[in-house]
Amino acid sequence: MRIVVAEDSVLLREGLVRLLVEDGHEVVAAVDDGPSLVEAVLAHRPDVSIVDVRMPPTHRDEGLRAAIDARSRLPGAPMLMLSQYVEASYAGELLADGSGTVGYLLKDRVARIEEFLDALHRVARGATVLDPQVVAQLLAERRRDSTLAALTARERQILALMAEGCSNAAVAGRLGVSASAVEKHIGNIFAKLGLLPDDAHHRRVLAVLSHLRG
């Protein structure tokens, strides 16, 4: 894959570049601020970009804003965001356009190399991938929401795994149930969240977005 890395920490940026190159990927640009990320994405149109949420000058959400800006100019540009802390609202903003191809992971996840690379590949292929800690926080925050309250415990469990970017087969494996049972539950989730059949192309992303917004 062709990848852009946006990270202001020299140590982490160079570490990511080395990891990606050793895994057989091409890093077409490695930058350290938001404007440079936007320029690199538009110039190289990478298969995926890895972006630190907090970048100069204020180290608040410049990376996130730059990623959203890049996606507004190049719709659907895959972005895997990295953050030191759980900020569920950031994941919601990334998903707001409903096109998927985004991920939000805690930086600690990078040390788990296989998990990190798996998430990177899934985002590049169009999946939505959220860190399990983000999903756990969202479940706790949205517990009393009237829409999500209509879901059964199993349906909420499946929706959480969908938010982590799991395929139907992966959900079935994690829960120890059949693929057909998962498909049935997902159909019920779509119905309860008001996602109509003509929304089929983005229904999975819309379900996750509904989960995030509560």
Rank of each mutant, 00 (worst) to 15 (best):
L139C: 11
G98A: 04
R60L: 02
L195G: 05
G100Y: 00
D47Y: 07
V171W: 00
V102L: 06
I189Y: 13
L74W: 12
R13L: 06
D69W: 07
P46R: 10
V21K: 15
A136W: 01
A111G: 15
L64N: 06
V38N: 12
R156C: 03
S89Y: 05
A149V: 04
R204A: 10
L11R: 13
Q84K: 11
H211I: 06
V134D: 00
G187D: 01
Y104F: 04
L20E: 03
A30D: 04
I186H: 02
V17G: 07
S9L: 10
V135K: 06
A70T: 07
L195P: 05
R143M: 08
D199N: 14
V134I: 01
R204F: 02
R125V: 00
H59E: 02
G176C: 05
A88T: 11
G98F: 05
L139W: 04
S178E: 08
V5P: 08
E7G: 10
R13W: 02
E155K: 09
H121K: 15
R112K: 13
V208Y: 06
V123A: 12
V53F: 05
G15C: 09
T152L: 03
L19Q: 09
L95A: 15
E14Q: 15
A6H: 04
G100I: 00
V171H: 13
M79R: 12
R143K: 14
A70H: 07
L148K: 13
P197D: 00
P132T: 00
E155C: 03
R73E: 10
T101K: 15
E155G: 04
I113Y: 03
R144Q: 13
V31D: 05
I68D: 04
A181Y: 09
G173Q: 09
E183A: 15
D69N: 11
A6S: 10
A40W: 12
M55H: 03
D32E: 14
A169R: 14
R18I: 05
P132H: 11
R54H: 01
T128D: 04
G100M: 01
R144H: 12
E87I: 04
P56V: 02
L64E: 04
G92A: 09
L105N: 05
V28C: 13
G214L: 11
R13Y: 04
A191H: 12
V171P: 10
T58F: 12
S49M: 12
R122Q: 15
E7Y: 12
R174W: 06
A127Y: 08
S178F: 02
D131I: 09
F116Y: 13
R112W: 08
V27Y: 11
S210L: 05
G187C: 03
C166T: 02
H44F: 10
R65D: 11
T128G: 05
A136Y: 03
H202E: 07
L20Q: 08
E183Y: 05
S49E: 07
L117V: 06
G34V: 01
R142Y: 06
V5K: 10
L139R: 15
I189C: 07
D145Q: 12
M81Y: 07
Q137D: 01
A169N: 08
E114Q: 15
Y85E: 15
R109M: 12
G173S: 04
E141H: 06
R122N: 09
D199K: 11
F116T: 11
A96L: 03
V27Q: 10
D198R: 13
R156E: 02
D97C: 12
P132D: 07
S89H: 09
L11E: 15
G176K: 06
A191S: 14
